[in-house]
Simulated assay, not measured.
Amino acid sequence: MTALGILYPGHFAEDDYPRIEQLLGSDIRVDLVHTETGEDSHRVDALRDMGSSERLARGVEGLRLSGAEAVVWASTSGSFVLGWEGAHEQVRALALTAGLPASSTAFAFVHAVRELGVRRVAVAAPYPDEVAGLFSDFLRAGDVEVAGVRAAGAVTAREVAGWGEAETLALARAADVPGAEAVVLPDTALHTAAHVPLLEKTLGKPVLTANQVTVWEGLRLADRRVNAPELGALFTREPIVQV
């Protein structure tokens, strides 16, 4: 049994996680602990506060008895708004507090792009322009080339959580550009676990979504590989050997 600890901010698309757990198989357990969000806003100051070390430390307390082998902070924006170095500091503090290997959804996207062996991605971000730009900057800092960005302008996570398949597919289509080898959809408030196969079939390329890569990152930290075709190319490809 492999147990993953997920720190999830608030209550938005958390039902993606039991769905993903079911698709992974019976020997993977995804333990979700909700952290306090403060103000629900896609403003930089609010996002920084949401990912504060104090809030994450309180969340870790809920994982103490779970037997988790790794912990992932399940927020893209609550990490990348700190910048590349600030996000590293956040993860280092989380690992120290939890006593476990740790990461965040923001870093999960960078690692997942490398896993797929692609370099150029299109960003389909629910966020306002400023926040979408900061995510693109974060990817570039991780040596990922951003071929195009589409920002949907959603002001709150609650708004994004209300989107269905049609809205998600429309955003992904609008963001895709010629030359992009994959499309990435940040924001763990976006329900995507049930939509990855359709997204990839429609776009004809790998699609990476926030809750999908969060769980994959936990498995990576726990040194587990799982074949789960319903979760997309990320869960079916052979590992890329980095040289």
Rank of each mutant, 00 (worst) to 15 (best):
V226C: 09
R58S: 07
G164Y: 01
D137S: 13
S136M: 03
E181C: 00
A46N: 10
V207R: 05
L190P: 11
L56E: 13
L221P: 01
R225L: 14
G232Q: 04
V160D: 14
R237M: 07
G204W: 05
I240A: 08
A174E: 06
T192V: 14
D45Y: 03
A93R: 12
R150G: 03
G10M: 08
A108R: 05
H11Q: 07
V149M: 12
R64I: 00
R114I: 02
E115T: 11
G51P: 14
A70C: 06
L32Y: 04
G62E: 12
T156F: 05
L198Q: 13
E145L: 10
Q242N: 11
E85N: 12
V207H: 14
R220C: 01
L116N: 04
L185T: 13
A154M: 07
V226K: 04
A132S: 14
V121H: 08
S104F: 05
V72S: 14
A87L: 02
L4V: 11
G51R: 15
Q90E: 08
G83V: 15
Y127H: 12
G99A: 05
G83D: 03
A98M: 07
S75Q: 07
E181V: 00
L82R: 15
R158L: 01
G179Y: 02
S41N: 14
E159N: 10
T2V: 15
A161Y: 15
L190R: 03
G179L: 12
A193H: 00
H195E: 11
E238T: 04
T168F: 09
R225A: 15
E130A: 13
G5P: 14
S41Y: 00
A3M: 10
G67Q: 08
R64K: 05
R225K: 10
D40G: 07
Y8W: 10
A228P: 06
S103T: 09
G99E: 03
T156L: 04
P101Q: 04
F138V: 13
A124V: 02
P239W: 08
P186H: 06
A157M: 05
V71R: 03
I28A: 06
G117Q: 10
G5K: 09
A154H: 07
A193T: 00
A102P: 11
V33S: 13
S136I: 01
W84P: 02
E14N: 06
Y8L: 08
F80V: 05
H195T: 15
F107D: 04
L47I: 09
A112P: 01
A152G: 04
A112D: 11
V146M: 08
K201P: 12
G83Y: 04
A170C: 04
L208N: 06
S26Q: 14
R64D: 06
V123H: 13
S136R: 10
T105P: 08
D15L: 12
R237K: 07
G142A: 01
D223Q: 15
R237Y: 09
G218S: 11
P197A: 01
G78L: 00
G232I: 00
V155S: 09
L116E: 05
E14F: 02
V60P: 13
I20N: 10
L171C: 02
G10S: 05
W216Q: 03
E69H: 08
R224M: 01
V155T: 13
T168C: 15
D15T: 12
T214W: 06
V149A: 15
A233Q: 10
L94A: 09
T188K: 11
R158Q: 13
V121K: 02
H34R: 15
V81M: 09
